[in-house]
Design a protein around this nucleic acid. Structure first.
Length: 838
RNA sequence: GCCCGGGUGGCGGAAUCGGUAUACGCGUUGGACUUAAAAUCCAAUGUCCUUUCGGACUCGAGGGUUCGAAUCCCUCCCCGGGCACCA
């Protein structure tokens, strides 16, 4: 045996050993209980992985190695999310075709990952840009289209002028493009939209089944943004038309002193001739449409608007005639695009009312108060109604109930629910994405419009979007054509539109002339279902086979960055629920438990980035200290979910610990007759055994709960104790090795094999603790006088309070502090402390 | 503005069904080994007072509950994250 642990040599040896013996190859189906441990798969970017990216991968590796040893059939796969803007922009910048760039980057990523010794089963590797993979992404899209969940839209959407593509709300950060930071514009553009809002209620209510961190659940709730209230019709005076408003505070309706519409509201055109100041109104509409979201938000405090002169609305409750305004603080895209303004009880309405000298009518007061003085702040809480006709005196809650009922009876409104979440803008005007498998056929469009077709000839989606025809399943995958120029055009068309012989094709329905959809899918598409493909990655007939899906799903543990809380994690849940509805998956939710990984910042506290030149490459750390030291340090650096700065000196501590373990193996007594050779005293043997079993318990629980830092600190405590002993028995040392092996698998495996074992340490059973050994019969009694610790003595647990008091009062220190003073009270907490009050 | 999470030595952090605050690691100081250095090992290491024995104080700030508070309650300050004119 060598004196020094040669990590460079041994790590390679051990990695080969694992591969040759297929230690981490997952069996498809097994009688063992399954455990599906999943990492969020990366974009294979050109800059490679830094030490922050791999923190989550190391954690799932540690966790899954323990699960393997605990007797589970473990699935821990890895793949590549390689479509989308990051890969494409990298390719454009470096003038390499995205496909080649992706291939090279994957090679590089894989090399880095393998050096760390991660236990992925590479026979299940997937790549979202592989036609055999995206065939099924397209297949799922077609199923959604077929069910009427996809529709063509021409509404203005977010447009990134730099990436030259439309974006979904989820792709924004504030009013900026999440990828490049450009300020997004509004642009009217033909696009495909998925009706995710149809699933809003289920996405919200099924959150209760998930074992996710609270803040992510909160973020999703917030993003979905459910509001319950009422839709109310306000008749326009001397007109058959009415304006419908949405409110969550119908109890304040007697305080409504005007209506406000979004500038784009359709009533403006409809009442054109009645509006006396139409020119002024038109000008305001034009100006507000030109504003970007950012400008609208920047002027939050300064509200603007224009009255529609000549029009009056009638409050259905009190028949009051009130003015109507348009203002851009009311959004066209939410609810009915119109509100009833109650300045006394809504701050925004109050700001507006004060600016335009509109009446403020108080109708809700704090219970017990007479009237509050509304000058600066609206009273937005619930309370008791005043000045509200027959509803006066009711609580807000009761009033809402009765007024909603009244609405229904008088047929001027009803209960309503709205969500902040918007439908998913699903097309991108870019090259590097899955082609949308639809063609457009003029002939079929005509036939649909003229109703000249056989029943069942067209799907629901085709009838909903006349002219758009699905590509037959047998023709999938629709491959992305190879092109010379893949830069975005900026015209609102994708680069694919220029490839004439690809665009023009035949209609699969009528065999007539047709052209292909040239937009591609967004980068999130492939990641909506990838966890299903790992289960059955080579299946040619189905995207996953039913029995394998049933065995493996749901994912037991999902680990990745919190930045996906309102993006990937909502989209994937949406697709999964759809797949559940059409009967191809068996679980309502894909991810049972979710843990997010904290960001590793550079030593300077900034995010690691090429721009700051503060990136730490795992290869450099492995080169100097070895993979085990890197793994151990990443787990020891701090609480897993917390973000933390990389300390270049911190790794020295874990490296010393590993060297210590390597030396400790020299103290192991190896022969069968070990106990007779044990030079430790009986007491130290027993003490050590107790400690060992306590630590088995602690380490197992800590890994289970992702508290890796404290698990490692316990292993360090154990190593420090071993160092003090004369020798260590092989059994006990091997328990320690097994506990350490998920963190430092190379070195532990090396020692294990050197001990003469033939099979991997990871095929061994995870150590079990003996609960009898953990129970102590003595404890440290803390003696407090007036709440201050004055003495500590070791005490038998079997002693009762009287016996203990007797001993305590004999102590010199206790006598000194009491010094003849009267004892007023004694508080005794069993097995903990005694507090003497004097 | 609203909703989450957090504030503990020189540093990363332990300890939260109220009961020994500072485990483990880094750093620092002193010592051993060495011609020397590195590595390694041993010891010390919250702050203040004290020659010693010992004592006082300390978990962002202030207040409260309690025999006892890092932990529970109230008020405030600071940091991180999310949402943001959503009616």
């Amino acid at each position: 045996m060598e004196d020094q642990y040669n990590f460079k040599k041994h790590e390679r040896e051990i990695q080969n050993f694992w591969e040759e013996n297929n230690i981490f190859k997952t069996k498809d189906l097994s009688k063992k209980p399954k455990n599906y441990v999943l990492d969020m798969f990366p974009y294979p970017s050109g800059s490679g992985l830094h030490v922050g990216h791999i923190r989550g991968y190391i954690a799932t590796d540690v966790f899954s190695r323990m699960k393997l040893m605990q007797g589970y059939n473990v699935l821990h796969p890895m793949g590549w999310d390689a479509f989308g803007l990051p890969a494409e922009n990298y390719a454009i910048k470096n003038k390499i075709h995205p496909e080649i760039a992706v291939r090279e980057n994957i090679k590089n990523f894989k090399k880095q990952i393998n050096k760390i010794g991660l236990n992925y089963d590479w026979s299940r590797e997937i790549n979202t840009t592989d036609p055999d993979y995206y065939k099924w992404t397209q297949w799922i899209f077609l199923k959604m289209f077929e069910s009427g969940l996809a529709f063509e839209s021409f509404e203005p959407i977010n447009w990134c002028p730099s990436c030259k593509t439309g974006l979904a709300n989820e792709d924004l950060e504030g009013s900026k493009c999440e990828r490049c930071g450009s300020i997004v514009e509004k642009k009217s553009l033909r696009q495909w939209v998925l009706k995710i809002t149809k699933y809003a209620e289920r996405l919200l209510s099924d959150l209760k089944y998930l074992d996710w961190e609270d803040f992510i659940i909160e973020q999703q709730k917030n993003w979905i943004g459910k509001s319950e209230g009422a839709k109310i019709k306000f008749q326009i005076k001397d007109s058959p038309l009415y304006i419908e408003v949405f409110t969550t505070r119908i109890d304040t309706i007697f305080g409504c002193t005007y209506l406000v519409l979004a500038p784009e509201h359709q009533i403006i055109e409809k009442c054109r001739s009645e509006i006396e100041n139409f020119e002024e109104v038109e000008k305001y509409v034009r100006i507000s449409q030109q504003k970007t979201d950012l400008e609208r938000i920047a002027k939050v405090k300064e509200k603007t608007g224009v009255e529609l002169k000549g029009l009056k609305a009638i409050n259905p409750f009190n028949k009051e005639e009130i003015p109507i305004f348009i203002a851009d603080y009311v959004l066209k895209t939410y609810a009915t695009g119109a509100i009833m303004a109650v300045p006394a009880h809504d701050q925004r309405d109050l700001d507006f009312a004060k600016k335009y000298n509109l009446p403020i009518k108080e109708v809700v007061i704090k219970p017990g108060n007479k009237k509050s003085n509304i000058t600066l702040n609206a009273f937005e809480e619930d309370g008791i109604l005043i000045n509200s006709g027959q509803f006066t005196g009711l609580t807000s809650k009761k009033a809402r109930e009765l007024m909603t009922k009244w609405l229904k009876e008088k047929k001027c409104g009803k209960k309503a629910v709205y969500y902040k979440m918007r439908d998913w803008v699903f097309s991108r005007q870019r090259y590097w994405g899955e082609p949308i498998p639809l063609v457009f056929c003029e002939n079929c469009k005509k036939r649909i419009e003229e109703k000249k077709y056989k029943k069942g000839e067209f799907t629901k989606g085709e009838l909903l979007n006349p002219g758009w025809i699905q590509i037959p399943e047998k023709d999938l995958p629709l491959k992305l054509p190879n092109v010379k120029y893949y830069e975005p055009t900026g015209t609102g068309e994708s680069p694919l539109a220029n490839i004439k012989n690809w665009v023009f094709t035949k209609c699969p329905k009528c065999n007539g002339k047709a052209r292909r959809e040239t937009n591609t899918m967004p980068q999130w598409a492939g990641s909506c279902w990838y966890f299903l493909r790992y289960i059955d990655p080579k299946n040619k007939k189905n995207f996953v086979s039913k029995n394998k899906e049933k065995y493996w799903m749901p994912v037991d543990l999902y680990v990745g960055g919190a930045e996906h809380a309102t993006r990937h994690l909502i989209y994937a849940r949406f697709w999964h629920k759809f797949l559940y509805d059409i009967g191809v998956v068996s679980t309502k939710e894909p991810f049972k438990k979710l843990i997010h990984v904290g960001i590793i910042l550079a030593h300077d506290g900034k995010k690691m980035s090429k721009r700051w030149g503060n990136v730490i490459n795992p290869n450099d750390i492995i080169e100097r200290y070895g993979a085990d030291a890197l793994r151990l340090y990443e787990m020891f650096i701090g609480p897993f979910t917390e973000s933390i700065s990389w300390d270049p000196k911190g790794i020295i501590g874990v490296k010393r610990f590993l060297d210590k373990v390597w030396k400790l193996k020299e103290m192991v007594i190896k022969d069968a007759n070990k106990n007779s050779k044990n030079k430790n005293s009986k007491k130290s043997q027993e003490d050590f055994k107790k400690l060992l079993h306590k630590i088995i318990k602690k380490v197992s629980e800590d890994i289970e709960n992702f508290k890796f830092n404290t698990a490692i600190s316990q292993l360090m405590v154990l190593a420090n104790e071993m160092e003090k002993l004369e020798n260590i028995t092989e059994d006990e040392f091997c328990i320690f090795l097994k506990l350490l092996s998920p963190f430092a698998p190379h070195m532990c495996e090396k020692i294990w094999l050197d001990f003469g074992n033939k099979k991997s340490i990871h095929l061994e059973k995870w150590p079990q603790y003996n609960s009898k050994l953990i129970q102590e019969d003595v404890f440290n009694l803390v003696i407090q006088i007036n709440g201050k610790v004055r003495d500590i003595i070791e005490m038998q647990k079997s002693k009762n309070q009287k016996e203990i008091e007797k001993i305590v009062f004999k102590r010199e220190k206790v006598k000194k502090w009491i010094k003849g003073q009267k004892v007023k009270k004694i508080i005794y907490i069993k097995n903990r402390l005694i507090n003497i009050i004097i």
